[in-house]
Amino acid sequence: MLSKIINSIFIIIISYIVLKIIHYLLAKLFKFTRFDTRYENTLFSVFTSISYYIILTISIILVLREFQIVDVTKFGTLVTGASIVGLIAGVASQSILKDIFNGFFVLFEKQLQVGDFVVINELFRGTVEEIGIRSTSLRDWDLKRITVPNGSITSIRNYSKEKMRVVAHVRVSYEEDPTKVLGALEEVCGIMNETYKDYLWKSKCGEVCSPFKIYGVTDIEDNPVGAKYTITGVVQSYKYFSALRDTKLQILIVFKKNDVHVAYPTHINILYHDDTNQKEL
């Protein structure tokens, strides 16, 4: 019995070493490929996951053989072992197969890759850190790791697909002159197109396709605060959040310089004094 335990431990150690060797060889292999970096990281993550499950399955079979539960040389014992495995797999096969198949569809259609910033199911937000055959792992803003089963993924919003449109809204008091507001926003667009031109999305010929411009007044109805103005611009996907932050900052700076006031909720308190309720002493 002691020898079987020792052999089992030895099998586990060897399996661990083999798994590390496979990961090392995969990392070396992808250094010589000409794929996109994110695509390489995605393939590495997937193959790592597959190798893990293969090595794990082989290790379990070898350990079971040590305890004479499964003997791959004997058909009857193999069938018995397969029946046990089949029974266990049958319990969880529905969710497991759903995770695996959905994971392959996500990968095949390139809905996301390692390094993409995504929102999954309108609930989980973060950078894709690892893609496996059963689950996908994200790292959110707080650096918490979020693991989502592939079978539960119903929607993906990907912020890392070549280009994105920055849409910046600002509400301005109704008392402000619209012509003055539009002039200030035109100045903001000029700053974004010149100072931050590296953000802009360009065609293969190097031409800027959709620079920042004023979209116009987008809301004046049923809003007591002020009119909403909108400017837009198409930027490279990995520059989206930086471009959005800088656009909002430039709006505040230019508005301050041109004495344009951003609208905000105000409350007017009216005090009513009734002299008829006063009595003479």
Rank of each mutant, 00 (worst) to 15 (best):
F32P: 08
F30I: 14
E40Y: 06
V63L: 09
F44R: 12
I21Q: 05
Y16I: 00
E66I: 05
R34L: 14
A82V: 10
E66P: 04
D36C: 09
I60F: 01
L87M: 05
F67V: 10
L29C: 12
T73L: 12
L87E: 02
I61P: 07
S49V: 00
E40I: 11
T48C: 03
T42I: 06
F47M: 01
I13L: 00
L25N: 10
I12T: 13
F35L: 15
I17H: 04
T57M: 01
S51A: 15
Y39H: 06
I22P: 03
L25V: 13
I11L: 04
F30W: 13
T37I: 14
H23S: 14
V72G: 05
F44Q: 08
T77M: 11
Y16L: 00
A27E: 15
D71A: 05
I50W: 01
R34K: 15
G81T: 12
V79T: 10
I69N: 10
Y24F: 11
L56Q: 06
Y39P: 01
F47P: 00
S45H: 04
T37R: 13
I61A: 07
D36L: 13
V63W: 10
Y39L: 06
V79L: 15
F30T: 11
E66C: 03
T33H: 08
I11R: 06
T33Y: 07
L56E: 04
I11V: 07
S83I: 15
L64N: 08
F35W: 15
L25C: 09
I60H: 01
Y52M: 04
I88Y: 02
T48H: 07
F75M: 07
S15T: 07
T33S: 11
F75T: 12
R38P: 07
V18S: 02
V46Q: 03
Y24I: 11
I50L: 04
A27H: 15
I11G: 00
F35R: 15
